[in-house]
Every structure is written in structure tokens, then in C-alpha cells.
Design a protein around this nucleic acid. Structure first.
Lengths: 166, 166
DNA sequence: CGGCGGACTGTTATAGTATACAGTTTGGAT
DNA sequence: ATCCAAACTGTATACTATAACAGTCCGCCG
């Protein structure tokens, strides 16, 4: 398992300036909320920034500790409410296997929401592959099952870790 | 949401005698453990039976309550240890979205482990569709990601509930 | 201006899920 | 018969999430 998310060095999708990711995410969030008439308040924005601290998922209580460390009055509901808002807006995703949250790199786009979780570095790639969703719908349909929502979380090794390990 | 699992009537894959499922599951478990030199002790066997009480997933604490109601000395670790064993043996699966456990209908076979969860009746169908796993591996490979484990949980309506609702 | 309503936040308490650790029993091999 | 490893029990505690209710802020209408 990787370090605590806050301590991670950047290098998520291999050697990028992570500040660009954060800026892009916050910009997208502002636009997205503007469009929806939703209010990106200070707490919500700060939680979103904290989630984007790395490309690895963060636990709710880690976010809580971060808020408290900044001197904010914060209790579990503070964080969960902010996360619920961000989830509603499609700005973050929840990883069920990890009970943790990760920023969405393309809040506007479509969302089959498929996640690749690296077991070595802990970072998450979001995949948007129509073929996967289609294969699932097809398989389900053969049993007469009508799909309304898919949870796809794949564990393995990301490219960077694969090379490093080899 | 459905009733508490223990209270569910059978009718999982539409009108079958559920006792056959349970018998088959227990038989398979005996054989499976025999093959692996694993011990299917009384507690483990009883937990497996309780999991098979229906085709809907059961929470660990529901199992715990059931054991206690039978006069067994039981605490959380009792159940979790049994579940861990059963998971190791491939006799039950964990549904991450639900924090709940469900019996595996074909412990011996291959396991992409794809689950169809009915939002109406709560029952779970296990799917084994190579095309889905293949689609995921292909999509991941395009990003250089090496898949080692997939979690696929699909929510929707099973055939029976679809008809009933329509 | 003043008060009303709705959305957001704070606070406390509690529910639900899971594990660590220490001690004891059990079953089987030598 | 004795020893060993695996399994079981029991207690305590960690981790994740929500309920319930009170207070606060802010824009809007009268």
C-alpha cells in the first residue's frame, strides 16, 4: 500500500505538474456549478482541493483531519456533506473498494465511470471506454437484466509501476 | 429496498426450490474444502448456510445476529473470520457497494466475478461473461495498465422485477 | 428597514462495518 | 501422551457514515 495521500509526490500519469490538474479541476468545478446554479462554497471548494491533492483516493477522515489541521471547525458531517455535494455535481467519485474519494478529471463528460487502481502507487486512472459499458449491458441483457448503474473498479499495476517493478 | 434477507421468500432466479441451491452450495463447499485440505468447521458451515438463506446479500452483522439468536457465542470476529475463510475458498463473494456477502453458485469455476444486483428485490445474479473481462483488459491495456483483479457490480432490475413493474 | 425562508454549517450523539490483540481450546501428528 | 499449529472466543477499539437538531448566513419580498 502507498503512503498517506497527502504525502505523495506528484507523478500520477507520469511526470506532470500536478498544479495544472488542480487548477483545471477547480476551474471545471466553478464552471460546472455556475451552469447548475449550485454554490461552490468555501468548505466545498477546500474539500475539492484536498481531494485533488493527489491522484490517489483519499478517505473522508483524512480530509477531516486536514480541515482540522487548518484550524477549521470540522466534524464528520462537514466532510460528508461536502463530499455528497461534490458527488452530486460529478466533481468527485467514490471508490467502493477503498471507501475513498478521488477527483473526476472530466466532470462534464459522460460517465460509465471505470477506475483503474494501481496497487503499487495507489493512484487512480479514470477510464471512459464505451465498449466496456456495452459489454456489460449485453451480458446483463442476456439474463433479462436492465442495467441502470455500473460500478467498475479494476486493480492492477499502472504503466509507471509496471516499468519500475520489471 | 428489499426486506431483510432472512425474511425473503425464495424466487431468486424465478420460481425454484431454494433448498436445492443450499444443498448444492453445501455439497460444493464440502468437495472444495476436501480438495484444498481446508476445514469446513461447524461455524464456517453454518455461516455459509446463513449466507445462502437467500440470493440476496447479507450483512456481516445480520449473520452475527442470526448466530446469536441460535444461542451461539458469537462476536464480530466470529463472523468475519468465517467470512474470510469462505471468501478465500471462493465459496462466497463480497459486494463492495453493499458491504454484504452472497453465496457463490459455482465455487469451482473461473471468476471474473460480475454481479447484477436488483434494486427492487435485492437479489444478486452472478455473471461470468468473458467478453466483459476482455473489454476491461483491452481498455486498461491501452493505458499501459496491467489488470490483476476486477470488481464489477451492476445495479438495475432483474427480469422478474422488470415484468412486475411494467 | 425588518423579517421571512432556504441553504449552509456546527455540534453532539450514534449507527454500521471491520480489525487488533490476548488468551484458550481443539484436533491431529509424532 | 505430548506437542504443535490452527481455529476459536472475548474484549476492546478503529474506521466509516449518518441522524437529529440548533444556529448562522444571505438574499428577497414586503
Amino acid at each position: 500500500m502507498p503512503d498517506s495521500p497527502a504525502a505523495l509526490s506528484p507523478a500520477p500519469h507520469a511526470g506532470h505538474d500536478h498544479r495544472d490538474c488542480v487548477r483545471a479541476a477547480l476551474d471545471a468545478a466553478e464552471r460546472q456549478c455556475g451552469r447548475n446554479g449550485a454554490r461552490l462554497t468555501a468548505v466545498r471548494k477546500r474539500v475539492l482541493e484536498l481531494v485533488w491533492d493527489s491522484h490517489a483516493p483519499v478517505g473522508a477522515y483524512a480530509l477531516l483531519d486536514a480541515l482540522k489541521a487548518e484550524g477549521q471547525n470540522a466534524a464528520p458531517p462537514t466532510v460528508y456533506r461536502a463530499l455528497d455535494f461534490l458527488l452530486d455535481q460529478g466533481l468527485v467519485h467514490r471508490l467502493e473498494r477503498l471507501n475513498a474519494y478521488v477527483g473526476c478529471p472530466h466532470p462534464m463528460g459522460p460517465h460509465s465511470a471505470q477506475f483503474l487502481i494501481c496497487q503499487s502507487c495507489g493512484q487512480v486512472l479514470e477510464l471512459e471506454d464505451p465498449a466496456i459499458g456495452a459489454a456489460i449491458r449485453a451480458g446483463a441483457e442476456r439474463l433479462g437484466f436492465l442495467v441502470s448503474r455500473q460500478t467498475i473498479e479494476v486493480e492492477g499495476l499502472c504503466q509507471a509501476c509496471r516499468i519500475q517493478t520489471a
